[in-house]
């Protein structure tokens, strides 16, 4: 979440059909993500490619 906040673009995280603001740790909690769940990142705006790479890598790391 702190990593997501560094980017000016919008970051959404989707898990089991529910979409929330990836910059909010409270909203992320309500997704109830468990280890090995498949989540989708939706990023839109400035620096979106860079954000996708950093945050994508981060999610994978957390899971390992």
């Amino acid at each position: 979440m702190q990593a997501a906040s560094q980017y000016p673009c919008k970051v959404n995280v989707i898990n089991k059909g529910k979409k929330v603001n990836g910059k909010s740790s409270l909203s992320m909690l309500t997704l109830g993500i468990a280890a090995q769940d498949e989540v989708t990142l939706e990023i839109d705006g400035e620096q979106e490619e860079e954000a996708m790479k950093t945050l994508g890598d981060l999610l994978v790391q957390i899971h390992e």
Binding site: N21, K23, S24, S25, L26, S27
Partner: peptide, 9 residues
Amino acid sequence: LLILEDPDL
């Protein structure tokens, strides 16, 4: 403290 900075709150 982080909760107090949470944008969705």
